[in-house]
Design a binder for these strands. Structure first.
Lengths: 207, 207
DNA sequence: AATTTATTTAATAGGTCTATTAAATAGGGT
DNA sequence: ACCCTATTTAATAGACCTATTAAATAAATT
């Protein structure tokens, strides 16, 4: 591993890679130390517990995952255009961090404590932006520009369509031996299809 | 636990519940034995290894998960109607087995051996039905009844929309204290929305 | 140079885990 | 009653895990 940066950062970075790949419980502090090239006790010296170390990383990844949906786009483009852009930006983020969806699913289901803590903070911190989004959406529906749908359902749909390929990717890779370029192309196509599916699903009924 | 059935079945059943809840690595044979009310060695007596025991259960769940998509519906209803029915049946199955999606995601990502084994057998066993579905779909697209979409994308979309709520459910339960009835109602609504989203997304462009 | 502080290591306590072994118990069949 | 087989248990080997402790080394400060 890189010897230029200090060991604390080194450990953090190695831990991140391992946790992203295998989740909390399948990574030991011994694994982390080995990868970082240091003694196992050093991991505990800097971070005290494995849980601490994981929390730091997970928190950051989760915030990243949600960031795009927790910021307000104040351009004067139409609602649907801004929505499309958000969705595309979110997908692009996942392309850069392909294991985030798995990590989040895994830890959010398995660890009740982490889940409770996170969920509460998300809920409280983003109520405003949620309400704003909600009122804009319902406005568009009233105008007949968008098929009637609840805000929660739409958000779930978007997240769902955006994460699924990153869950399925390992399976596809098991069957077909993709090289990097093919995966890039696959993700590009899938991004297009995911966005298109949501956009098409929002078209109002023909009269 | 129930004392009427024999201990082998008892162990299998308890293991199933635990594995579904926590996945392979967070369940010990000691946990299983405790739940089943027997000595830990008995788990190994009947199933030799934890891996064996898990395989049996996982295989069954995974087959169940795919079953609906691996059978052919030969009624003479329109393609889109049959598709909708399949999707609904699949969702209903998941309602009865809410932890299946998590288990599959978890183990399919974490364990390369299991993934490889499964993926190959699925691929080989269901090529015929896949081709049949593929040709029907492309036929409908040619007729202009359905928006152009690849078969793989459509299947991914359907699975995605069907599983997402079962992934998110623990998160929602953390925030709101649902009782059983509320969850049933929530799932019913979500089923409707998932199916509707796919159906709407398949409508051809207006001319 | 001496002293203090920060980093790193070896050693280990105390726990859990899987799997095996040998012994105990139970249940037919003869 | 005896034998045979199936079921169940206690005990334990051997591995690995987290976290701590005390000692060693390096770096910084006076």
């Amino acid at each position: 591993m890189n010897k230029d940066i200090n060991m604390e950062q080194q450990i953090l970075q190695c831990a991140e890679e391992l946790f992203l790949e295998k989740g909390f419980s399948l990574v030991s502090t011994t694994d982390i130390a080995k990868k970082a090239g240091c003694n196992q006790a050093l991991v505990h010296y800097y971070f005290r517990t494995k849980e601490n170390l994981f929390q730091q990383i997970f928190q950051e990844k989760f915030t990243k995952f949600l960031y795009i949906f927790t910021t307000f786009d104040d351009s004067d483009e139409p609602f649907i255009t801004r929505l499309r852009k958000k969705m595309e930006a979110h997908f692009d983020l996942l392309i850069q961090n392909r294991q985030i969806p798995f990590m989040i699913i895994n830890e959010l289901i398995l660890n009740e404590n982490r889940r409770n803590k996170l969920v509460k903070s998300i809920y409280n911190n983003n109520l405003d932006i949620y309400r704003k989004f909600d009122s804009e959406l319902q406005e568009e529906i009233k105008k007949g520009n968008i098929r009637p749908i609840s805000t929660l359902d739409l958000l779930i749909n978007i997240v769902s369509m955006n994460i699924i390929i990153f869950i399925i990717l390992p399976v596809l890779e098991s069957q077909f031996n993709f090289d990097n370029e093919e995966i890039t192309e696959l993700l590009k196509q899938r991004k297009h299809e995911a966005v298109e599916t949501i956009m098409c699903s929002l078209r109002p009924e023909k009269k």
